[in-house]
Design a protein around this nucleic acid. Structure first.
Lengths: 138, 138
DNA sequence: GTGATTGCAAATCTTTTGCACTAAA
DNA sequence: TTTAGTGCAAAAGATTTGCAATCAC
């Protein structure tokens, strides 16, 4: 169990990202950031919201996830064309992807070490490196 | 310029994958495998087919790409939720992804070396490791 | 009040599917 | 022939968008 964060802190966080702390952004942020590191899809988050009695449309969930991602509060992860995952852990780290269940699992940042990385093509700079380890049941 | 492969070789390749060498599969295979390593989307391949006077429906292009992928002739790469890329290079290697243009570029297999890789979660085995280096203009 | 945000439904886009037709073996 | 493969249009999903209503400031 993660201790519940005071609302003021979440409000501050949203405001700091340049967004108005509206009722739904607050509620979604609370679900996202008050429960440790999470990997959610829009659909999952929408379902949770409804379960918590928070009335919010799926479109708003999508918009909010995108805004949070642009603001650097979330990180988008694409492992299969079907749907996008949003990761509340924005620090440098990688993932296991369970191909059977679609489940995503963090790999601690220093459990993957690159011995060599190629230079970016000329005129380009490296934005980020994603490592996805696809695993399936033995 | 890659030398054009004789048809017989392509036919054999398709047959070996357990698929009938139909007119459209042959034509698509020729476009795919006769031009070096390629990263194509269904849309791109469909467009090329039409340009070459090969009448084939987009649905068939999708079906064929999936069949080739299942048969191990292609490898699917997902870098962004918008569309899937299919890579004619099925050997172990990684990619640069140009986030501005959507362009994919191979990184030679041994230009990325993993110093450490975590063990797969228990009961799981590693299927494949994908490294995507996202780059953007400086 | 005023402009940002939301909700909803409709629109979009990619990919898959059902089924009658065609072609490979 | 017999069975797999194709084309088309329709279906299915995920995500985005337009616009009137609502809310934060």
């Amino acid at each position: 169990m993660t201790a519940s964060r005071p609302y003021s802190q979440i409000i501050e966080r949203i405001r700091h990202a340049g967004l108005r702390p509206t009722r739904q952004r607050l509620a979604l942020a609370k679900l996202l950031f008050d429960n440790g590191n999470r990997h959610v899809t829009a659909e999952i988050l929408h379902g949770e919201s409804l379960n918590h009695g928070i009335s919010v449309s799926l479109a708003t969930v999508y918009n909010t996830l995108n805004q949070f991602t642009t603001a650097g509060l979330l990180r988008e992860i694409v492992v299969n064309g079907d749907r996008s995952y949003f990761d509340t852990n924005t620090t440098q780290h990688h993932h296991f992807y369970h191909t059977d269940s679609g489940h995503l699992e963090d790999i601690a940042g220093d459990d993957v070490v690159m011995e060599r990385l190629p230079a970016a093509p000329s005129g380009m700079e490296i934005e980020r490196v994603d490592v996805i380890v696809r695993v399936s049941p033995t």
